[in-house]
């Protein structure tokens, strides 16, 4: 039976796509740690984060941990990823959506003492969207 050129091209295209896909998936998998936008408190607890290098720390602001210093612009809070907790100090204006129990990404440096000194704070929104009344009902439950 003769192989029709149409089929030959189909096989070639399939093989090429599979090869490129495989290569890219491997690269992505290798990049996993480097491409992460932020580190977590667990990474810091595990010693994966180097002190005194610029990095971003991400997690949830622990409820009840937010303390405003007497100067009015400095704050301290704890960031948690459910497994470990990192204390953060920041001086400046926070975004509107920054609040306890919400996601946060802090840019700054980790001190050798374990305190993360942030020079920039971003609020991280999660994938839940709901009207205010409903949020109150959820909170009341």
């Amino acid at each position: 039976m003769m192989v029709r050129p149409k089929h030959q091209r189909l096989v070639l295209v399939t093989l090429a796509v599979a090869a490129v896909l495989g290569a890219v998936l491997l690269a992505m998998w290798g990049l996993q740690d480097r491409a992460a936008y932020f580190v977590t408190p667990s990474d810091i607890a595990a010693g994966k984060a180097e002190p005194d290098t610029a990095m971003r720390l991400g997690g949830m602001v622990v409820e009840g941990s937010l303390v405003r210093e007497r100067d009015g612009v400095s704050i301290r809070f704890d960031v948690s990823d459910g497994k470990a907790v990192t204390p953060v100090a920041y001086r400046g204006i926070t975004p509107d959506l920054f609040r306890e129990g919400s996601g946060v990404v802090a840019e700054g440096r980790l001190q050798p003492s374990g305190l993360f000194v942030a020079d920039h704070i971003l609020a991280k929104h999660d994938e839940r969207y709901m009207p205010p009344q409903m949020a109150n009902e959820v909170a009341a439950r």
Binding site: A35, Y37, F38, H125, E127, R128, Y129, M130, P131, M134
Partner: peptide
């Protein structure tokens, strides 16, 4: 899903789940 991103995860999945309230969706 692969990397930690600032962008939130997906709200609507093909499986039919949605984390967006119907009033907003």
């Amino acid at each position: 899903l692969w990397w930690r991103t600032l962008h939130q995860g997906q709200s609507i999945s093909v499986a039919g789940g949605s984390t967006i309230a119907p009033e907003i969706l």
